[in-house]
Amino acid sequence: MVACWVTFTGATLVACRGGLPARSQPMKLRILGCSGGIGGRASGTTAFLADDDILVDAGTGVGELELDELLRIDHVFVTHAHLDHIVSIPLLVDSVGELRDTPLTVYATAETIRMLRLHVFNWQIWPDFTTIPDCHRSYLRFHPVEPGHPIRLGARMVTPLPARHSVPTVAYCLDSGEGKLVYTGDTEYSTELIAAINALDHVRHLIVETAFPESQHGLALTARHLCPSLLHAMLDEIAGAPEVHIAHLKPGQCERIMGEIAAGAGRLHPVRLEQGMILEF
């Protein structure tokens, strides 16, 4: 295991492998899962692997990785506490905890961390790995994040952005130093998120959810998800020209939703995100 050190500067966590900051170079995001539900080999729920050490959300797609790949993950950035985005965290830390030299770090809002502690790592659903083998050298640790406060990992930076869902949530901007990728997580139409995206430069990719077809517009509003018309309203406000990738499609509704998106497509021409894809930025 490569040595790692961390320091705190204000609200920013600085972490470097081997004690030296890495040079700025493109990042690669591997899509381990991007489905809004399970059902089939290519229907893992949301999990993205950036380079080989950063996991963004931890749905069932994490099961695509071999043990040696799981061991290389040092950082897990969580958008929100819904099961399809966090289900693999308990299994991941259980699989690799005793094999690691440093704790696995989970980054999330204070409220999401509270929910993970209360409902998952509570010695009933799962052991509390923040106290195993003891509090001073645990397998797992939590690091709270806030919108607008970046986490720097060598030359890379991960910045939470404001989003709105049925539970507290954030989006994330991943910045390689060469370009940026924004992942909205689960969100409804959000002027705050749109403004945050428009304040960024060099956004090459935008991953945005569309969970429901237009016939379920009311359900989308209630559940605080997007449907095609709400997606179009959001994309019409995006100032730049990123490649737009649609995620979190409900199984059995994928073709219908993508057809409705294509029928009303504006200048950004969204495409479906698929498991196994690699996005470079």
Rank of each mutant, 00 (worst) to 15 (best):
T60F: 12
C135I: 12
A265S: 15
S95C: 05
D186C: 11
P26H: 01
I207P: 07
H82Q: 14
R204Y: 06
I113N: 10
G177K: 01
E214L: 05
I86A: 08
A58L: 02
G177S: 07
L219G: 00
A155R: 00
R224S: 09
D57V: 12
F212P: 00
I89A: 03
I261E: 04
M27R: 07
C16S: 14
R100N: 01
Y172V: 10
H82P: 00
G266K: 06
R152F: 07
D134K: 02
L226S: 04
E192L: 10
D134I: 03
C34R: 04
H82M: 08
A11D: 14
E255G: 13
G39K: 07
G218T: 11
L65E: 01
L32Q: 09
G276A: 10
D201L: 06
Y183P: 00
M157N: 01
L193N: 11
H149K: 14
G37Q: 07
F121D: 05
T112Q: 07
I86H: 13
L92D: 01
F121R: 02
A11V: 09
T159L: 12
H143P: 00
L153T: 11
H136I: 00
W126V: 11
A163M: 03
L55P: 04
R224H: 07
E188F: 08
C254E: 15
L153I: 14
G19V: 09
F212W: 12
T169Y: 05
V182E: 07
T112H: 12
S35H: 08
V78F: 03
G19M: 11
A262F: 01
W123P: 00
V158F: 04
P160F: 08
H217M: 03
P144V: 00
R17K: 12
G19S: 10
A199M: 02
G240Q: 06
C254I: 11
Y189D: 13
R41Y: 08
E192F: 04
P21F: 09
E243C: 02
A22M: 01
D51F: 06
E69Q: 15
Y189G: 02
A265L: 05
P150L: 05
I238V: 15
V56P: 03
A233S: 10
G276Q: 10
H202E: 13
R41D: 14
L268R: 09
S35N: 14
I207N: 05
H165K: 09
W5V: 05
M258E: 13
T191H: 11
